[in-house]
Amino acid sequence: MTAAVTPERILKDLHSLWASLGKESETPEGHGVLRACAMTVIALADENEAAAGIARTLGQVMQDHPNRAVVVRIRSGSEPFLEYRVTAQCWRPLGRERQICCEQIEITASDASLPDAEPILRAITAPDLPVAIWCRSPRFFGLPALERLYSRANRIIVDSRDFEDPRPALARLAGAAATGPGLVADLAWTSVTRWREMVAEIFEDPARRELIPHLTRVRVQHSADATPSTAYYLAAWVAAACGTELPSVFEKVAAVGSGIEGMVLEAGAQTISVRRVEGTAVLIEIGSLKSCTAAPRLSEAELLGTELGIAGRDPVFEKTLAEVSRAF
């Protein structure tokens, strides 16, 4: 390391970066570049994770949610190590003359240097704008060295599908959602939105809503080796919506897609089933009535973008999370 990493150095480098981008894009028509920033997104990742993949996801997200992206690549080990570089991701929207650019700061820090990195991270968040922390590994969720950074965050985003045993992890999330400073979000929950929407559409018919008090069981079908967090979410969501203690069954079935494969709501002999049949196609069966719809699998960038688009509390998620930790 040649010189101490300070917020001032990083911000100065950003300033120089914008000056050079501005010069490079100068044209006789004077279109230039537009610096866009509506929030700060801090991505916490293992150093050995492919940087290009993270950059690609953040680049896609930026086009819907322009942000100052800070990628913190965390190196295992007790040796102090801290360095940074600044770059920009630019794109030209269709039919527009002017390029739009978002800045990206990449910080590499060893575990031992995280306490030094933490005040830097707080200082380089874009002023007066929301801060989201995206934990790309379960081990970064609630990391003590970053406690003060977490308290600055408006939103802490995890993906419980990465957790080895989802039940204790979901209980931790429920604890953090109930008491933590920032609003907790889980991309696993985001990924089941389409399943939930399909179930909700079925009950748009007032006559079918009469069936809700008579539901006796919910079966969630998945193709994972162990029951995934998404299955727990769906079962808990149905129970929380019905306001009853609804027995749930998790069934491993042959994979058509990946993850959730179907849901069956039982009311005595009557069943309502929603199951993936091929690719993105989902078959809905309500008694003898059959219809087909689509449930495309969303990319990581789409899931993250959805969460960044939600600014306030998510009462349905919070209620479901509480139900997950109570029931399972």
Partner: peptide, 14 residues
């Protein structure tokens, strides 16, 4: 049963 659909989620659903 009330008139509302308890499965609706206005924050996330279209």
């Amino acid at each position: 049963m009330g008139r509302d659909n308890p499965f609706q989620d206005s924050l996330r659903f279209e």
